[in-house]
């Protein structure tokens, strides 16, 4: 399965990873993704200051959330105004 990871704002300067390919897996959880990204980037991306969107919907961090093939996970730092 393939997963797209999008980082916005200053997070894009810290970490870019356009796509993750997980051979042999049909789905993974958010916690798996966090572990796969690993330190030090995982703690920066999953900081409570940031919001997470899955397929364009902002969600609360849920380690059990199941991510499937083709999903897009976006990490959104605090917005800085239009």
């Amino acid at each position: 399965m393939r997963l797209s990871v999008v980082t916005l704002g200053k997070l894009a300067d810290i970490f870019t990873l356009p796509e993750i390919e997980l051979v042999g897996a049909d789905s993974i959880t958010m916690l798996d993704l966090r572990n796969r990204i690993g330190p030090p980037h995982s703690s920066l991306l999953f900081s409570p200051k940031n919001r997470i969107a899955v397929n364009g919907l902002v969600t609360a961090y849920d380690p059990e959330l199941v991510l499937a093939d083709g999903d897009e996970v976006a990490f959104l730092p605090p917005v800085s105004g239009g």
Partner: peptide, 19 residues
Amino acid sequence: AWFWKRERTAAGWRWVEPR
């Protein structure tokens, strides 16, 4: 609104923090 802003000054680029 979902915007992220950065500015370039003589010192280079910097991200604008929320006010």
